[in-house]
Amino acid sequence: MSTNDILKLSQAALTLDTADGPRTVLHPVDLQIHEGEWIALVGSNGCGKSTLAKVMAGLQPPTYGTVSLTAEDQPPVQLVFQNPDTSIIGETVYEDLCFVMENYGVSEEQMPARAAEALDKVGLANRIHAPASTLSGGQKQLLAIAGCLVVEPAIYIFDEATSMLDPMSRQTILSIAGKLHREGKTIIWITQLLDELAETDRVVGMEDGRLVFDGTPREFFFQRPQSGERSSCEQLGFTPPYTVRVVQQLFEQGYILNPPPLTPEELSKAVSEL
């Protein structure tokens, strides 16, 4: 993975006018995203995750500070929303992808091949001419992802893209994100489902519009500043995933697993080697 910065926020802040006067929803943020990274952005509802996503995607300019992109891709950032219905416009699957490509200047000659390739990647190749309204919730989210794929951005932001889906659809979208990551794409994965953090390179935690944690998943779950203090995961009000809780209980009983497992598969292997 490259260590080159692909996206950089310098003191980026956002203040909105409300009926009660100006309200700061995003306090000054300094954040560097490296090319090829998979970052998980976590925090409770209302902490500013989606606001930060819109600032990073260029949908909401910051009131103060700067957002700098080094990606030459057009567009450099694409955002997959929590509710796919907000981004589907075309009557059919193919028409929806064509609408996206038209907005970004893709030539008509390229459209069929790009659409076919994107739909093949998300498993919707056999639904190319289906009415978009007939798709299931999971299929609509896959179409939304295909709408990002056809314009070939450098950065994909998934804003709680799995939160409304059944476990199988959720796993499908996680697998697609993992494949994009292995292809060298930069992934920003916004979630409250903490078992999704195991595959990521880095976790960024938010609270009240501020960044309060930036480190590895293992540091997020297991690092405690002092003995007896809570982990960053617990400080943000989350219950650790089941695997992490089992590892914590093993630690308390004197069984040290190094590195601490994050997945059931890692835990099974570590315990078998004790």
Rank of each mutant, 00 (worst) to 15 (best):
S2D: 07
D5H: 06
L7T: 07
L7N: 09
L9V: 07
S10E: 15
G21A: 09
T24G: 07
L26Q: 12
H27T: 10
H27D: 15
A40K: 00
V42H: 00
V42G: 03
C47D: 15
S50T: 06
Q60M: 03
Q60R: 01
G65C: 01
N83T: 02
T86F: 08
S87L: 06
G90W: 01
G90C: 03
D96V: 10
L97R: 04
C98M: 14
N103M: 03
N103H: 00
S107F: 01
A116G: 03
A116N: 07
L119E: 07
K121N: 12
N126D: 13
R127A: 10
S133Y: 15
L135G: 10
Q141R: 14
I145W: 02
L149P: 08
L174T: 07
S175D: 09
G178L: 04
I187F: 09
L194M: 05
T200A: 04
V212G: 05
G215A: 12
G215P: 08
S227I: 09
S227R: 11
E234D: 11
T239E: 15
V246A: 11
V247A: 15
V247L: 13
Q248E: 15
Q248D: 14
Q249A: 15
Q253A: 11
G254L: 10
I256E: 13
P264H: 01
S268R: 14
